[in-house]
Design a protein around this nucleic acid. Sequence first.
DNA 1: TAGGCCATCTGGTCCT
DNA 2: AGGACCAGATGGCCTA
Length: 206
Amino acid sequence: MADMKSVPGDAYLSLAQSYGQTLYGALRGADTARSFAVPPGLDFNVSSRDKSGESSEEQSGEDEDSAEPGRDNEGKVPGRKVREQRSLRLSINARERRRMHDLNDALDGLRSVIPYAHSPSVRKLSKIATLLLAKNYILMQAQALEEMRRLVTYLNQGQTLTTSLAPFGQSSVYPYTGTTAAVTSEKCTAFPGTTSSLCKHCTDKP
DNA sequence: TAGGCCATCTGGTCCT
DNA sequence: AGGACCAGATGGCCTA
């Protein structure tokens, strides 16, 4: 929570812009549809009520009335306050639901850009796996970028590779060992279709 | 059947 | 006051 609050305004804006692209996006696969499906047991509060809007909320208010037959001095509709509270609660619930759907849309967007097998036969990444994989992917990209920078610097120092070039990272002239290129071909065991260098399970192995 | 994952509800807190 | 965010609780679904 503190982390969220500490995000600089500009960063938050840029995040929000990309976030808005996925907001209410039309791309909702089968998995997403499953995620949005309302559990049968929650139908009372969610699906039927949200679809019919306010009228259904009033119906729940009437339920409250029957349970609470008291009448105030002003002759107001019995349980009106209860009904208002119920209505407020339902609107808060709907807002929270929408927020979580937006969060899931963002996670889907994240899944779509990190390298793992996106075929239907492969199980969708869990939320935690998505975040961990994304973090490792970012770290790996940063490492690769740094390595490329060092290579460019090295080449700019006047060294010419006159001899036949060995595959990247295995050159006898280039002093830095290519870790990323070598590792990325290995497959992860925890997340099928993913390279092991992205997976904490694999990278943590001794 | 236990455990993992998920969606939803709910009450609390903070911010505008 | 209303909205956003968060965390805990709860129950459903799926898989090993």
